[in-house]
Design a protein around this nucleic acid. Structure first.
Length: 643
RNA sequence: GCCAACGUAGCUCAGCUGGUAGAGCAGCGCACUCGUAAUGCGCAGGUCGUCGGUUCGAAUCCGACCGUUGGCUCCA
């Protein structure tokens, strides 16, 4: 009998008898690995440790250190959850239960009554029992008929529906976990842990409704979210990180830092207090300063326009349920949800030569969109907002340069906020699309060109473009590694058509321009929310609502502190004095809580020497320095615009 | 929109099985004049989200509405 070769990631090779299972292979490599292994990857395919090798193969064992290992771990925990639920609620029908990219897992059930917090506690206890029973996960590949019979007998209609959706040439696999007379089976691709006993600690987090297959026309199922770890300490750490994230929640910080307020009189519509408004305006001013350099012209357009306009643009037919309407003098008007139609008619109101293009209209107009009550959230999903919106009207041959320079501007802007990890997606022609295929292909090629010339990495999202044109989306990762979509750049072949936009070319013929919708920050409100959480409320000095807090130690230092405050203000900085009769440490504590970037402590030493004792936010005392030196430092770090 | 939970002072929360509300922080006042994350004492502050019902009596029980939060295809 000839042996087979197993090659490992480090390049080494081992030989075994054919039919050897992976647990044995792991043991041969070392008992440590055998203990840590959760599953394995054989020639790129994820498999159970019980998998047997019949031929030469490349094997990589997955442990907790691998993302795939954790995925298997959590997915197996989801199976334990489902088994526990069916023990406690025998009528519950099982559906699907994947592990999520953020480390959690869930399982959806069809049950008569939604789960209560009490139910979750009972289910969690039952899960611990299943884990204690150390049931082995065993895989069996069966025919579709066989599988259908199993789930028919078990009375699991959702599994049969899933079974029917599995591709013909795909193998159907069942996973049973059994221990003595306790047996539980699920339709699953796998792989799984060797046994339930490998799961350390579990915690169920929340229960909520979730539509079957995410479609609101389908029945609402009950979803349970959970998390699991090999070790208690890891769970504690996970919960701690989650609390940290809660502390920097922009809704909380927005309130604590006096930036934003919400009222029932306008649900999902932020009210910005002075400090919030200051940041808001600094953000738009920043974009304005970029516009000056990149050749954009700002326009101002009406808040409310006739429905005729929205009928022409197509929004009335396709976007009506998100719009607000008002009737005046028997005529119907709509509050604008977008700026583009206004810009289109402005463009159309003048004759344009090919020499005039591109025309770039920027607009910070306030937009109103009705969002379903269940989806609004803080500043990230609101009904009243503005965007750093602009529309470029250009010739086809100008697309590449326009997009290139837009990416330039965007990257420069993101870097300023410390958003250095930018993911870029190019979305191409979807199934239902306007404009002919050649035009799309040409436009997509120009987008590729622009991206490649700019030298950025990007992914292609096939068929994910808008119906009116291909687009490029920009996602950033924040300080907690969460992704947010901010910028976008979308070509539009639809509106120029609908508004019959033209320019005159060099041969004196009328031609259709391309319209480009683009935004760097996207919604200013949303961007503020993302930024607040990214910097945990500690805004860069050029953006901080209060840049300098002047802190006199005693009453006899107040005059001096006032003089400095006035001087800083006259130089254009946002400075405040804290002349409350508090103790110095209390004043510092408050200034730190407000996230003020610079604190200037003034006592006898400083008054005598025309100096200040500088404390930077989040750092210790830097000691005294001449006031003029501090002003110089400030001019370098807090100047606006910061570019 | 749908499922669930929640809504008590500006903020964070307490208030057991119904007997008309309490704390800390913030605010205001007084004292302390103080050297790098929060001095002490006092005062004031609430239609208990709104409306309706049950009850001798409702913050508490029931219903409706409003709002907020967590979810609503990262596939078997």
């Amino acid at each position: 009998m000839s042996s087979i070769n197993v090659s490992l990631p480090d390049g080494s090779r081992l030989s075994f008898d054919p039919g050897v299972d992976l647990t044995t292979v792991a043991l041969a490599i070392g008992p440590g690995l055998a203990k840590a292994a959760l599953a394995a990857e054989v020639d790129g395919q994820l498999v159970d440790l019980s998998h047997r090798l019949e031929a030469d193969a490349g094997v990589r064992f997955l442990t907790w250190r691998d993302d795939e290992g954790q995925k298997v771990y959590r997915h197996s925990t989801a199976h334990v959850l489902a088994q526990a639920v069916q023990r406690v609620f025998p009528q519950a029908k099982v559906t699907i239960g994947p592990s999520l990219a953020d480390g959690r897992f869930y399982y959806d059930f069809d049950v008569e009554q939604p789960f209560t917090p009490d139910d979750l506690a009972r289910i969690e206890d039952e899960m611990r029992r299943v884990i204690a029973e150390d049931q082995a996960f065993s895989r069996s590949e069966v025919s579709r008929d066989e599988a259908r019979r199993v789930f028919d007998e078990l009375g699991e209609p959702y599994k049969i529906e899933l079974l029917d959706a599995i591709a013909e040439d795909d193998t159907v696999s069942l996973y049973g976990n059994a221990n003595g007379d306790s047996h539980w089976v699920d339709l699953c691709r796998g792989p799984h842990l060797p046994s339930t006993g490998r799961i350390g600690v579990v915690k169920l987090l929340t229960a909520s409704g979730a539509y079957w297959r995410g479609d609101s026309n389908n029945k609402m199922l009950q979803r349970i979210y959970g998390i699991s770890f090999p070790d208690k300490k890891q769970l504690a750490e996970w919960l701690r990180l989650r609390e940290e994230a809660e502390k920097r929640d922009h809704r909380r910080l927005g309130r604590e830092l006096d930036l934003v307020w919400f009222s029932d009189v306008a649900p999902a519509c932020p009210f910005f207090f002075p400090k919030g408004a200051l940041i808001y305006n600094k953000l738009t001013d920043l974009v304005r300063s970029l516009y000056r350099r990149f050749g954009y012209d700002e326009v101002i357009t009406p808040q409310i326009m006739s429905v005729d306009l929205w009928k022409t643009s197509g929004h009335y037919d396709n976007y009506r349920e998100n719009m607000y309407f008002v009737e005046v003098d028997g005529q119907e008007f709509a509050v604008k949800p977008m700026n583009c139609p206004a810009h289109a008619i402005m463009f159309a109101s003048r004759h344009h030569s090919y020499r005039d293009l591109p025309v770039r209209y920027a607009d910070f107009g306030r937009l109103h969109r009705y969002e379903a009550s269940g989806v609004t959230a803080g500043l990230t999903r609101v009904r009243s907002f503005a965007q750093d919106d602009a529309h470029i009207f250009c010739r086809t041959d100008q697309i590449e340069d326009e997009v290139f320079s837009f990416i330039d501007m965007l990257m420069e802007c993101y870097e300023l906020f410390g958003f250095t990890d930018v993911r870029i997606d190019l979305s191409t022609r979807p199934a239902k699309a306007v404009g002919d295929e050649a035009v799309w292909a040409d436009a997509e090629a120009r987008l590729h060109q622009a991206l490649q010339r700019r030298g950025v990495e990007y992914k292609v999202a096939e068929g994910e473009g808008a119906f009116y044109g291909p687009k490029i989306d920009f996602m950033v990762s924040d300080a907690l590694a969460r992704r947010h979509q901010l910028g976008t750049c979308q070509l539009d072949f639809n509106l120029p058509e609908r508004f019959d936009l033209t320019y005159v070319n060099s041969a004196d013929e009328r031609e259709r321009p391309v319209m480009v919708h683009r935004a760097v920050l996207g919604s200013i409100e949303r961007f503020m929310g993302v930024l607040i959480e990214h910097c945990a409320g500690a805004f860069p000095a050029w953006l901080a609502p209060v840049q300098v807090k002047v802190v006199p130690i005693g009453e006899r230092h107040v005059d001096y502190a006032r003089r400095l405050t006035a001087d800083l203000k006259s130089r254009g900085y946002r400075a405040e004095i804290d002349d409350t009769g508090e103790r110095t440490s209390a004043k510092i504590g408050r200034a730190e809580a407000e996230r003020v970037p610079y604190m200037l402590i003034c006592g006898d030493r400083e008054v005598d020497a025309e100096a200040v004792s500088v404390r930077e936010r989040g750092m210790r005392d830097r000691g005294s320095m001449p006031y003029v030196d501090f002003v110089e430092e400030l001019s370098a770090k807090a100047a606006f615009p910061p570019l």
